[in-house]
Amino acid sequence: MKKTTHLLAIIVVLLFTSCESFFERTAKVDLPEHEPRLALSAAWHAGDAPFSSPFSIFLSRSVGALDEAAPPAVSNASVRLFEDDQLLATLTESSQDPGRYLAQDTLTLRPGHTYHLEAEGNGLPKITTEPETLPAKIDFDAAPFSTNDNRIKISFPNPPGTDYFVCFVNRIRQGTQSNNRIYLKPSSNQEHAYIQETGLIFDDSYFDNQPISLSLLLQQNSEPIPANDTLAIYLAHVTEGYYKLDRSLERSYYSDDFLGEPAFLYDNVRNGYGAFVLANVMVKKIVVGP
């Protein structure tokens, strides 16, 4: 009996000492050693201000998922921009912002032309982006908006083929430069339209090659917009890569959810990481009527 008691006591002690690390412990996962690569990020908007800034990209060096160090910016790299496979510009690194590479102020990208980037440096393998064709700027009509309205209406022609768009509206308070995003949602149950941080993102498959007409509802509980405030409506005609990148960014944000399916960030950089995407933006301003 005494022996049995001792045996039980030993088992209990063993159980409880091992339980401390039983429920959560270091996982034994066969993760290959990370090989550092160049990572390029460039989401460039042509068109109306404030997006008509000089063409630039940012270059960093990837680190392993578990590395303590932050991914460092990559300086002294060679970054070249090609138009229709012809060298268009060699970008130079910003002196104030290491890792940022800029083109000349005078450089313009032309709708309908195809661009790609190459970069190498820091002893890392050379990277090349998938080609992106700059979409045409889309002129649109915006209906007048009065302070009692709860929807903003815009319409524009639907270019041939599959096209992708991002639309958002900022409110500029009268007499100030205060610029606030207005949160909107489509008034119809339109498929393939998503409300994201960047705005309303959608493709034109819903419109079946017909002209596009959007009726955007102010979100419930929004205050009425006073007369004489200005609404700045942004319509970006974006590439498929831009659309995929934007969607994957939104999804990856939600995949932090314990139950969420893993979301893979869009990547169009060969031999490295990152993405190069393009958009062309039209901005229209309307003054809110009484």
Partner: peptide, 12 residues
């Protein structure tokens, strides 16, 4: 599982 991290700037 995640295999790498990098720094960048993207829309949104």
């Amino acid at each position: 599982l995640p295999i790498a991290r990098y720094r960048g700037e993207f829309p949104g």
